[in-house]
Amino acid sequence: MGLIARIIESAGISTVCIISLKPIAEQVRPPRTLYLAWPFGHPLGEPGHRAQQLTVLHAALHSLYFAEPGEILEPGWRWRRETYTVPPGWE
């Protein structure tokens, strides 16, 4: 997926990847990465959990404005052990 991001970014479009395996991103170096150590198949979290999903989406989209080239952002949110509120402005 990071390889696809690199190709899209090279075409002049800003990209951000959500990933669950950091070592692969460290090798492939996608332009911007949000790393969440969550199970496969759950990049935005748990089914039906809107506040969590919007929190991840908000973090990913806003990283487009401040992440450095190749940066891997690590919010450190633990799987099923965090409380989420809908991001300000997105209520």
Binding site: M1, G2, I4, A5, I8, I13, S14, T15, V16, C17, I18, I19, S20, P30, F40, G41, P43, L44, L57, A60, L61, L64
Partner: peptide, 10 residues
Amino acid sequence: QVDAVLLTPA
């Protein structure tokens, strides 16, 4: 004319 792309894995 896409400005930004969000990529999500399996």
